[in-house]
Nucleic acid binder design. Sequence first.
DNA 1: CTCAATTCCTATCGGTTTAGTTGGAATATA
DNA 2: TATATTCCAACTAAACCGATAGGAATTGAG
Lengths: 138, 138
Amino acid sequence: MFSVSAKTQYAIRAMSFLARNTERVVSSAEIAAAEQIPAKYLEGIMTSLKNGGLVSGERGKNGGYRLLKAASDIPMLQIVEALDGSVMPVNCVETPDTCSLGCSCMPRQFWIGLKSTIDDYLRDCSLQDLVEGATHAK
Amino acid sequence: MFSVSAKTQYAIRAMSFLARNTERVVSSAEIAAAEQIPAKYLEGIMTSLKNGGLVSGERGKNGGYRLLKAASDIPMLQIVEALDGSVMPVNCVETPDTCSLGCSCMPRQFWIGLKSTIDDYLRDCSLQDLVEGATHAK
DNA sequence: CTCAATTCCTATCGGTTTAGTTGGAATATA
DNA sequence: TATATTCCAACTAAACCGATAGGAATTGAG
Ligand code: FES
Ligand code: FES
């Protein structure tokens, strides 16, 4: 339960690779090779990261990607949301009318609390923290 | 992302119904009607809850289910795990050799931290808390 | 200008999971 | 015996996921 998609895991590895190579532009193919990610699959992931405002994509020969911000300014939450959308235990957290038992039923607060707990954890950890291995030392 | 299955949501509603009717034995059909859950589907869910040691199932006419413990002694985590298995962001949290980049790579600690954050939240909230609506007031 | 390297877009595919149904066996009560 | 119930197993339709395929658009190098 609550499993993280392969896509998101790939994205994190790719981002961490970029964080370790900030001085240059890195091609999707190079990342794929280094991090053992299916090359064609990674292309789509990189586009999502770009659309999420996390990396810049430079097309054409010698093109590639680079981080748009310092790794310490990139909360893990942002990476996760760029790929899988926002953390959302149940639909009715955002749209209460989705619940078949009517708006704001009992469990709703419980899910809202869970969402904010997860969000907080993911927000408090930056890409830099992850790269340094200090992921849980807040 | 991190969405909760319909099965688990149904299970929680069913459990909360039982928590509000502790004095008697309640049939699966009655729960289904009250909580608007597909009756036949709920049967399977109730069996899982029974196998998880949360409810007792009494067969035959006038049979049904009841909570095996006081609602205040049932952490939400236990309900969730009875249905969807344990909270597990990525495989390698349990089995490190699953990681294609070798054991205990960088992101691993990050996922372990996330898992324990989620587990803690789900453990600290009891079925009783949920029924009372005091889900996040720890 | 041409070629190669690259991002970017769209479609498709096989596999797995999920939500739900069907049908019925076992069990208990009256 | 009839009925209400849990319990068990197979099945289905739809959605989702990881991955692949093919190619258009863009850019730099020669
Ligand atoms: S408002 Fe979400 S379960 Fe009712
Ligand atoms: S040990 Fe899990 S991603 Fe490497």
